[in-house]
């Protein structure tokens, strides 16, 4: 067959993929989008003892931490719907958060200093989550105690819901909320992850 009879196929093959160039261009796009102020949500993942965590930040601050069990693609899709679809993999905005998490998992850090964007939680759930940092590193509090702290002692189940839907696990320490009988209770990242975090904090 002459090359002429097959020009369309040759045209389709004439421009091979260049993955290295694309990777470099995508990094450059993330930088430019940040500079232009159109990077509404930046994200990256970090490997931790509780598995890979997805970190996402708006211009205001850290807006989402997600366990693998939550399905990172589904989490990003939800962020696209609830915040903005202008989302890129852009690690730079999350460098400080990643470093603080690394320090936390070595036991060197007991509190997080990064700015938080609370827009994914509202109402009583938000009130509950805002009180959680009051439970100090290495301590736990019962769901009932947190309900009282949040101003509604009867809302014990609502505290459970607030913890189960915490958009910022690990950083906002819902893992420190346990049952009144001292048993661990549930955890959005799985019971093993909760045990790992509590063990880490009591060992330090």
């Amino acid at each position: 067959m002459s090359i002429h009879d097959d020009l369309p196929r040759h045209l389709a093959q004439a421009y091979p993929d260049t993955p290295d160039e694309l990777r470099r261009l995508r990094e450059r796009l993330a930088d430019a989008a940040q500079t232009e102020g159109i990077l509404d949500v930046a994200y990256r993942t970090v490997d931790t003892p509780v598995g890979p965590l997805l970190l996402a930040a708006t211009e205001q601050g850290l807006v989402r931490v997600a366990y693998l069990a939550e399905d990172h693609d589904a989490v990003l899709q939800t962020l696209a719907e609830r915040i903005s679809p202008r989302i890129l993999h852009a690690p730079a905005r999350l460098d400080t958060t990643a470093r603080e998490l690394e320090e936390y998992f070595t036991g060197a850090r007991h509190t997080f200093d990064v700015p938080l964007d609370w827009r994914l939680s509202a109402g009583f759930r938000a009130a509950v989550l805002h009180r959680l940092p009051d439970i100090g590193y290495g301590h736990t509090a019962s769901y009932a105690a947190v309900a009282a702290l949040a101003g509604n002692p009867k809302a014990v189940r609502a505290v459970g819901t607030a913890c189960a839907t915490n958009p910022l696990p690990v950083v906002v320490p819902c893992h420190r909320v346990v049952r009144s009988d001292g048993s661990m209770g549930g955890y959005l990242g799985g019971i093993e992850a909760k045990r790992t975090l509590l063990t880490l904090e009591t060992a330090a």
Partner: peptide, 19 residues
Amino acid sequence: TSKEPFETVVAVHGATVLR
């Protein structure tokens, strides 16, 4: 009714646009 994250758009179409 909802759009994919723009990262997905870049991942899916970046190579074609480069070509």
